[in-house]
Design a protein around this nucleic acid. Structure first.
Length: 836
DNA sequence: CTGTTCTGCTTACC
DNA sequence: ACTGGTAAGCAGAACTT
C-alpha cells in the first residue's frame, strides 16, 4: 500500500539499509530506514507495510460472521483510535498443517496488543498468532527488503519539516513507492570506534576524564586534564561538559554509519548518559537529533537513531568467543588473538585515584601515557570492528534481522529468526513464543539423554586413526526430517523412526513424517548453501566467503540445541532426544564395524571414533570408512579426521576408570592436540599447565616417560626452593554470579570479596586472580588465598602448589607408565638429599 | 575430632 | 534468560561414627 505523503520530485536510487525503526507519519505507521546510496550518499527511505496478526477459529463456527465481528473491533488507545481495518479469511499452514485463519489488519502495529486482547475474549477465537512479531521484522519479510542487501528504490523526495515532522541529517529523504532487491554495490565502511575513561567504574559516580575516537585514518583524544608535551592526537577542552559536547560534535561532523564500542552497552554509553544528565546536556547523537536511548532488560542495549551502535563485546561474548582461544573476552585478549595487538600497560588504579582526589598529582609523562592508552583502546576497537565486520555482515544477511539486533543476538535468536524469515514461502504462520508459565515448566523439565562417550582404556597408543561425522546434528535432523511440526504420534508408512530409547522414564520410539518439514528443509538449504560457499571459496578464496561459511556453519550447528531451548517457538525435547538417540545408534554401529574389521577402538565422543591401526594400514582404515559410508542414510557422512603418530589416554583421578574427554594426540607434522587436560584449563596456574604440557610433549614424542619425570623433578625442586615466579602461580577463576548469591565460599569468592573491599571493580563475569600464600596448612585454602600483589617473592604455599597443582596435573600421565605419585615426589627428596 | 561422601562450582568436550 | 547433554576435578559443606 502506498503512502499518502506527496513529496516533490520523483527519484530512483540504489540503497543499502543499515538501520531500521518505525514511527507514525500522517496517521500511519511507517518504516524508516537509514543507509547509503550507490553514490555513497546518506539516505533515509520511508516505506509502509500492512500491520496484521492472525486468529484461529474454533471448529464449526461461521467464519464470515466471525470475521465481521472481528472487523468491528475499535477502541480508544494511547489517545488515538485503535481499530481493525479489515479482516480476510485465508488458507494458511500452521505447524505444517492446512488451516483456515483470519488475517486481521490493524491501523497501527502498536495497537495489536490491545486488539488481540479483545479478540481473545470472543468465544469463536481459538488462538491468536504472530502478535509477537516486531513490525520491522514484519516489514523485512513482507517487502523483501533485507538488512545489508541492496535494493532499488523508486519514490518521491520529501521536504523535511514540511512533509515529515522530523529533520534527519541525511543527503536525501525518500518515500518509497517501489522497492525491490537489486545488484550489489560496494559499501564504504564509515564508522567510528570510541572509548571513554572515567574516575570511577560505577555508573553515576565520578566523571569522564577522557574520550578517544578512531577509525582507519582518524585518531583523536579529548580530555580536560591539561598537561604539557601531549601527543598530537590530544585536544584539550575546558571541562567535562565541553568534553561531552565536543565528542558529540565530532560524531555529527564525521557522520559515522556505525558507532563502535567494546562493552559500550554496559559501560561507556550508560556512563556517558549519566554524566550528560548531570551536566544538563542533551545526548542528541541520533541522525534526527534524538537522544541516545536504552532498551529495557537485564542487559540494556544503547540505541542511536540512524546510526548502528555496535558493542563488539556482546558479539564476541555471545557468538564469536566459541571460535577463540582467548582465556577471557577482554579487549586485550581478543585483540591479541585476532589482530596481534595489545592494550598499553598503565597503572590505571593509581591514575584514577589521583584524578579523584582534589590534590592528586600526576606527572605529564603519566598523563601522556594515559592518553595513548585510551587512544589505543579506541584503535583496537576500530581494528577489531574491521576484522569482525564480515562475520557480522554475513550473519546479518543469513538471518535477515537488522545488524543492531544480530550484533547483540545469541544463538537461539539467530536460529529462530532464520526460521521466521523463511516461513512465507511455506505459507506458514509462526508459532508463538512461550509465556512465563510455560517457560518455567520447560526449564524445570528433566533433561533427556545426550550423546555417547566411550570410556577409554588408559595407555599410550601407536598409529591412531580418527574418524568423525560431518555436521553430525544437522545431518541427522535433515536425514530423519526431525522438527516439532514433523513429529508424529504414530508410525507413518514411508516415514522415519528413531531407535527405542528411554524418555521421561519410559521406553519410547518417536516417529517423523515422510513429507519434508519446513524446518529440516530450511536447514537442508543452509547446508547446501554452505557446500556452495565452500566450493566457491576453493575457487576464489576471500574473507567474505570465509565469513559466510562461518555464519552458515554457526546457524546449522545451533539448530539442534534450539530444539531443546526453553524459550524456543519450536521447542521440542522429543526432537532433541530423538536426535541424540539416532546419534548413539550410528556411533555404536560405526564402532562395531571398525572392531569387526579387527581394529581396537580406543575412544569415541558424540560424533568421533578413534582407533589404533595395530598391524593394519591407513589404506585399510580408508577402506572401512568407505564401507561404512555406503550404509549411512540421507546426508550422513563419516569423514577421516586424521592419522596420528601416537596418543595418550589416562585414568580419572580416582583411578577406577579411564578418563573421558581427556587425551592428547601427536600429529605427523609434530603438532600436539590436547583435549580436556589441565594444560588447556583456565583454572590452573600456568606453572602446572606448562609442566603438564611439556610432560605430554615428551611422552608423546619419546614414547617413554624418563625424561618427562626428570623434568618434573626439576620443576618440583624449584618450587621447593621458592624459585617459582609468582606470575606462574596465579590461579584464575571466573566469578559466574553476583557475590551474594554464592552458597559455597570458594577461594575465588573470598578473594572477590576482598577486592570489592579495596574498591576494585568486581562483578558477575569478572576473572578473579589469586595466589595461595604460605600459612597454616590446617586452615582452609581460602584463608590462604591472596591477591597476587599481596604475595611477596617466594611467599607462596609450597605444599599447595606441589600437592594441589603440579603433581595432580602429571600423576595420571605417569601412572600410564607405571610411575607412582610417590616416585614423582620422592625424586624431589633424593635431589634435596644430594644438596645437603 | 576426623575421615568420607555429597554438593556447589567451574571449565572442559562435542 | 537467551542452543543441548556429558564429564572431570577442585574446595567446601555435610554427614557419620
Amino acid at each position: 500500500m502506498e503512502s499518502t505523503l506527496k513529496g516533490k520530485e520523483q527519484v530512483k536510487l540504489d540503497f543499502i539499509p543499515l538501520d531500521f525503526d518505525y514511527l507514525d507519519l500522517d496517521g500511519k505507521c511507517h518504516i524508516r530506514m537509514f543507509g547509503r546510496t550507490s553514490e555513497n550518499k546518506r539516505c533515509c527511505v520511508l516505506d509502509t507495510t500492512d500491520a496484521y496478526f492472525w486468529l484461529f477459529p474454533r471448529a464449526g463456527i461461521d467464519l464470515k460472521k466471525y470475521a465481521e465481528k472481528v472487523a468491528k473491533i475499535s477502541l480508544e488507545h494511547a489517545s488515538r483510535i485503535a481499530k481493525v481495518e479489515k479482516v480476510e479469511i485465508k488458507d494458511k499452514h500452521f505447524l505444517g498443517n492446512p488451516i483456515k485463519a483470519l488475517q486481521v489488519f490493524v491501523s497501527n502495529p502498536k495497537d495489536i496488543a490491545v486488539i488481540k486482547d479483545i479478540a481473545k475474549t470472543f468465544h469463536e477465537t481459538l488462538e491468536k498468532k504472530e502478535t509477537d512479531i516486531n513490525f520491522v521484522t514484519r516489514y523485512i519479510i513482507d517487502k523483501n527488503v533485507k538488512p545489508l542487501e541492496w535494493v532499488h528504490v523508486e519514490g518521491r523526495e520529501l521536504n523535511q519539516y514540511i512533509e515529515v515532522p522530523f529533520d534527519v541529517d541525511t543527503d536525501i529523504v525518500v518515500m518509497a513507492d517501489e522497492i525491490k532487491p537489486t545488484q550489489e554495490h560496494e559499501l564504504k565502511l564509515n564508522f567510528l570506534a570510541f572509548d571513554i575513561e572515567s574516575t570511577e567504574f560505577e555508573i553515576g559516580k565520578g566523571e569522564i576524564v577522557m574520550i578517544s575516537l578512531a577509525d582507519h585514518n582518524f585518531h583523536k583524544v579529548l580530555t580536560w586534564k591539561k598537561y604539557s608535551n601531549a601527543p598530537e592526537e590530544v585536544e584539550f577542552v575546558k571541562d567535562e561538559a565541553e568534553l561531552i559536547e565536543k565528542f558529540m560534535k565530532i560524531i555529527h561532523e564525521r557522520k559515522p554509519d556505525f558507532l563502535v564500542g567494546y562493552f559500550s552497552d554496559g559501560f561507556d554509553l550508560p556512563y556517558l548518559r549519566a554524566r550528560a544528565e548531570q551536566n544538563h546536556i542533551k545526548l542528541d547523537l541520533g541522525l534526527d537529533k534524538s537522544n541516545l536511548s536504552f532498551s529495557r532488560g537485564i542487559m540494556p542495549s544503547a540505541k542511536i537513531t540512524g546510526r548502528v551502535h555496535i558493542d563488539l563485546y556482546r558479539f564476541v561474548n555471545n557468538i564469536f568467543a566459541y571460535t577463540l582461544q582467548s582465556p577471557t573476552i577482554s579487549l586485550n585478549d581478543v585483540a591479541k588473538e585476532l589482530i596481534g595487538e595489545e592494550k598499553l600497560e598503565i597503572d590505571l588504579g593509581h591514575i584514577t585515584k589521583e584524578l579523584r582526589s582534589t590534590h592528586g598529582k600526576i606527572k605529564d609523562a603519566e598523563m601522556r601515557r594515559f592518553s595513548l592508552y585510551n587512544l589505543q583502546d579506541a584503535v583496537l576497537t576500530s581494528k577489531l570492528f574491521l576484522k569482525l565486520w564480515n562475520n557480522l555482515a554475513e550473519l546479518t544477511k543469513v538471518v535477515s534481522e537488522p545488524l543492531f539486533e544480530v550484533s547483540r543476538a545469541r544463538y537461539a535468536y539467530l536460529v529462530e529468526n532464520n526460521i521466521l524469515h523463511n516461513l512465507k514461502r511455506f505459507n506458514e504462520i509462526a508459532a508463538s513464543r512461550p509465556l512465563g508459565e510455560e517457560i518455567g515448566e520447560r526449564r524445570e523439565r528433566e533433561k533427556y539423554i545426550g550423546a555417547f562417550v566411550k570410556e577409554p582404556r588408559p595407555d599410550v597408543y601407536e598409529k591412531v586413526a580418527v574418524f568423525d561425522f560431518r555436521s553430525f546434528w544437522p545431518s541427522i535432523i535433515v536425514s530423519f526430517n526431525i522438527s516439532m511440526p514433523t513429529l508424529l504420534e504414530k508410525k507413518e508408512s514411508g516415514g522415519y523412526e528413531t531407535p527405542e530409547f528411554e524418555f521421561d522414564g519410559k521406553k519410547r520410539k518417536f516417529y517423523f513424517q515422510k513429507q519434508e518439514g519446513f524446518i529440516p528443509r530450511i536447514l537442508k538449504e543452509l547446508l547446501e548453501k554452505r557446500k556452495e560457499t565452500k566450493a566457491e571459496f576453493k575457487r576464489n578464496p576471500s574473507p567474505v566467503l570465509e565469513a559466510k561459511d562461518y555464519a552458515l556453519k554457526t546457524l546449522a550447528n545451533a539448530t539442534y540445541g534450539y530444539f531443546g531451548f526453553f524459550g524456543a517457538r519450536y521447542y521440542s525435547p522429543e526432537c532433541g532426544a530423538s536426535i541424540t538417540a539416532i546419534s548413539r545408534y550410528y556411533i555404536h554401529k560405526t564402532i562395531d564395524e571398525i572392531e569387526k574389521f579387527g581394529f581396537e577402538v580406543i575412544y569415541s565422543d558424540t560424533d568421533s571414533v578413534m582407533f589404533a591401526l595395530g598391524n593394519k594400514t591407513e589404506k585399510d582404515a580408508k577402506e572401512i570408512l568407505e564401507k561404512i559410508n555406503k550404509t549411512l542414510p540421507g546426508t550422513m557422512e563419516l569423514e577421516l579426521e586424521n592419522f596420528y603418530v601416537r596418543g595418550i589416554f589416562v585414568m580419572t583421578k580416582k583411578g577406577e576408570t579411564g578418563a573421558k574427554k581427556k587425551y592428547a594426540l601427536l600429529a605427523k607434522d609434530g603438532n600436539i592436540k590436547i583435549r580436556g587436560f589441565e594444560a588447556v584449563r583456565r583454572d590452573r596456574c600456568d606453572l602446572a599447565k606448562e609442566t603438564q604440557d611439556v610432560v605430554l610433549k615428551k611422552v608423546l614424542e619419546e614414547g617413554k616417560a624418563d625424561n618427562a619425570l626428570a623434568y618434573v623433578i626439576k620443576i618440583l625442586k624449584e618450587v621447593r626452593e621458592k624459585k617459582a615466579p609468582i606470575e606462574k602461580l596465579i590461579i584464575r577463576t571466573k566469578l559466574k554470579k553476583a557475590i551474594e548469591s554464592y552458597e559455597a565460599r570458594g577461594p575465588h569468592v573470598v578473594v572477590a570479596e576482598k577486592m570489592l573491599e579495596q574498591g576494585l571493580p568486581v562483578k558477575a563475569g569478572s576473572l578473579i586472580e589469586y595466589v595461595i600464600a604460605k600459612g597454616n596448612s590446617k586452615e582452609r585454602i581460602r584463608e590462604r588465598a591472596k591477591l597476587p600483589d599481596e604475595v611477596e617473592k617466594g611467599g607462596y604455599d609450597i605444599d599447595y602448589y606441589i600437592e594441589h597443582q603440579i603433581v595432580p596435573a602429571v600423576e595420571t600421565i605417569f601412572a600410564v607408565f607405571g610411575i607412582t605419585k610417590e616416585q614423582i615426589i620422592e625424586g624431589k627428596k633424593q635431589k634435596n638429599l644430594g644438596e645437603f
